[in-house]
Design a binder for these strands. Structure first.
Lengths: 241, 241
DNA sequence: GGAGACTGTGTACGGTAGACACAGAAGACG
DNA sequence: CGTCTTCTGTGTCTACCGTACACAGTCTCC
């Protein structure tokens, strides 16, 4: 982790380093991008638990130790595969309409990518170095909320909440469950458990007997609540101004 | 995994099994509860990554293989330690006031527990068998939203979103970061990265230059937005009735 | 034609979860 | 009392994980 510029805290990180060809020695058989895409493929196929240096190495036809010529460790591999998987963020003029329409469209875009790579909602949490594309997605999200009269901090909070909501929804959805059963329930078992102990959980029993709406309408409800909440916050700001 | 009742899907799971003394053989030196509490202690001290069968076994003075006499595998150990850590959920009459005050109080209670055990927000996701206490917390949350005119499904969605919000907030807070920097950013590095590439991320740059409010006010903002959103949904229901 | 830098390989280490066989303890039953 | 049976805890073993390190081979620069 050696800083080169002094201003860029992650200059030493593969994600933000411009790849400069070494002068001497044998050419490397792969690019960092190929490694990243192979890792994405492994995670898509075998899940996050099935992702190991061994498997990724086998995918590209190398020994696992050769991978360490491309990334410093597994965390860095994860970082580059995230930035490879999220693809390009929407351009500034890609989203049109009111802020609300833009937010809905943005959520749909994130949902698309995170559905294509179901492990993404699980790894885009916690302390780590983000890649340029991932930061680009956050940038795009911040842009969406600019028309609202929120303070910068509130705008960022809104972005955070939007991503959080998508994560919660999509992470559990990818687990093959209807969204709420797994939060913090997890699995259809909660429904059965409640049914087996109805006297102990009356409020839940009442909820569980509901026939249930289709997933799409649940998705709408959550997002709508969130955006309504932001709108209310914006109104508060407007009023106090 | 042998069902005993037929109606209870997790009857074979330690979490829902009433512990019946075996007739013959030596007495076991520990109770399941002691094992669970030891595991909680390890996780509190060494974090989730530091939690291994080995460490927990050492904590209680056993070999790791002896642990398998108490739990079937590590997942089951995690399950029992979750239910041990969350403690008793609030009683039906423990929360008072309007639904909004109750929701705020409930959020505070969850926050307390999840702060005491910072690994909790990370493990209470995904497909798994919940314990009786954890289900009790969900039950309590559902009760809070009963006064609102939401449909059962919407009520459950609201609960899910509330937990999701708390998880996002507390998981990142425990990582030693201010909430939003880690979502999906992660770490103060995002701030620095944006600063180093200001021309590329203008919207983010504008946000980052903000001095920033104290954490407590960010907490309020998020929760307030969420509850405002629920209130709006309830108003929609009222209006259409 | 070196010298030196770089890539990919092989080996080794300490960690993980868990399968399995076994020694010993303790109640059940003759 | 002795024996049978069942249960607990131990020790050993396998397969895998991330990764440190030494080394062989390859390429460019001087």
């Amino acid at each position: 982790m050696s800083r080169t510029t002094g201003t860029d805290p992650a200059a030493g990180h593969v994600l933000w380093r411009t790849p400069e060809e070494p002068r001497r020695g044998p050419r490397r058989g792969l690019t960092l991008d190929e490694v990243a895409r192979a890792a994405v493929e492994v995670a898509d196929r075998d899940g996050l638990a099935g992702l190991s240096m061994q498997r990724v190495a086998a995918e590209v036809g190398l020994t696992k130790m050769a991978l360490y010529r491309y990334v410093a460790n597994k965390d860095e591999l994860e970082a580059v595969m995230i930035d490879a998987a999220v693809e390009e963020p929407p351009a500034p003029d890609a989203l049109a309409g009111t802020w609300r329409e833009q937010a809905e469209e943005f959520a749909r875009l994130v949902s698309d990518v995170w559905t294509r790579h179901p492990w993404l909602p699980w790894v885009t949490v916690g302390e780590r170095v983000m890649g340029p594309r991932e930061v680009g997605w956050v940038e795009a999200a911040v842009r969406v909320f600019e028309p609202l009269g929120l303070t910068p901090d509130e705008r960022m909070d809104a972005v955070s909440m939007l991503f959080g909501h998508l994560r919660t929804t999509l992470a559990t959805a990818s687990a093959g469950t209807r969204p709420w059963t797994a939060d913090p329930a997890g699995g259809s078992t909660m429904r059965d458990l409640v049914a087996a102990h109805a006297e102990r959980y009356p409020a839940l029993t009442a909820v569980m007997t509901d026939p249930g709406r289709p997933v799409v309408s649940r998705w709408d409800f959550g997002l709508r609540c969130l955006l309504d909440g932001f709108a209310a916050a914006a109104r508060r700001r407007e009023g106090s101004r």
